[in-house]
């Protein structure tokens, strides 16, 4: 009975983990290329969630259509923010970019609050559900996971098979070296930042396909925390590390939820969130450069 419940939850965790992984790739991309930590990460996810919600409620469009729209919105926001602030702060102390991305998140939250109020909302995308014996998986969850894997794959191909992708990778390795080889490093920075925010906003759409409720302007906080746990699991600067970190985190999160639920007098939902904070500290304590990293 308990084993069945646990394995059912772990399957859910695996599917959710793929989405988590994709939701962290943008964070890792930005850190890898620019060495900037996007503290407003969760707020970008929130913008994606509202994109899906708005298109669904206003035009009756399936969240799948929200994916490209979210990418465009995210990339635009990223470009604007890069050129108005980040670019001038890259040479300054770390404090500057940390505070700037943090404020960027607050701006997104407060803007959405003004546009949509701070009411907690959700949408209901009625797709068939599959009962696989130990758990029930809806088609929308499967689509979210497949979509995440696809995006991750596309990013991989882009990095490894296209000129533009390779130029960006050269900046990750050594920005001075890339500069000498004729790579326009400033443009690579802008592009990476914009792509990173684009990916993150897109992941917000995919996340609502998994969890279509609880959407509100301040929903991003827990996702920022989770994303950092995932990112440090995968080594912070590696988008693929982040993807696999996401899968691991999805499993751990759902597994620990099941276990906490068995302890009497404990709120499993809140404890799971506390647990992700403890995980973050423990990983940083043991190995700040990432546990899943090969080297």
């Amino acid at each position: 009975m308990i084993f069945e419940q646990l394995s059912g939850n772990l399957i859910q965790g695996l599917v959710l983990g793929a989405v988590y992984g994709m939701a962290t790739m943008g964070l890792s991309l930005i850190f890898g290329v620019l060495k900037v930590v996007n503290v407003g990460h969760g707020a970008c996810i929130m913008v994606g969630a509202y994109t899906a919600l708005f298109m669904f409620k206003q035009f009756g469009l399936s969240p799948l259509f929200a994916v490209p729209v979210a990418m465009i919105i995210g990339m635009t926001l990223g470009l604007i923010f890069y050129y108005s602030a980040i670019r001038r702060l890259l040479k300054g102390p770390e404090l500057a970019t940390l505070l700037a991305t943090f404020s960027f998140g607050v701006i997104l939250e407060e803007t959405i609050k003004q546009l949509f109020t701070s009411e907690v909302v959700g949408y209901n995308w009625d797709l068939p559900k599959f009962d696989i014996g130990i758990t029930v998986l809806s088609l929308s969850k499967i689509l979210a996971a497949v979509g995440s894997i696809l995006v991750a794959l596309l990013l991989y191909l882009w990095f490894n098979k296209t000129r533009a992708g390779m130029a960006m990778r050269s900046v990750v390795e050594d920005d001075d070296g890339a500069r000498v080889c004729g790579v326009n490093v400033d443009w690579e920075y802008a592009l990476s930042f914009s792509l990173g925010i684009g990916l993150t906003v897109t992941s917000g759409v995919l996340l609502t396909m998994f969890i279509p409720v609880g959407i509100n302007p301040y929903m991003g906080g827990p996702y920022t925390l989770k994303a950092f746990v995932i990112a440090v699991l995968g080594g912070l600067a590696s988008p693929y590390g982040a993807f696999f970190g996401g899968v691991v985190f999805g499993l751990v999160e759902n597994g620990s939820y099941t276990l906490f639920a068995m302890i009497p007098g404990v709120e499993p939902f809140a404890m799971t969130r506390f647990f992700s904070f403890v995980m973050l500290l423990v990983i940083l304590l043991i190995r700040p450069t990432g546990i899943l990293k090969a080297k």
Binding site: E267, S276, F277, V278
Partner: peptide, 23 residues
């Protein structure tokens, strides 16, 4: 720097959820 900021980002939420979760 950056790793420090990341480590602190969950302290307030973590503590809040500990109080709520473990009652």
């Amino acid at each position: 720097g950056a790793y420090f900021a990341i480590a602190t980002i969950g302290v307030n939420e973590g503590f809040r959820f500990l109080i709520e979760g473990a009652r």
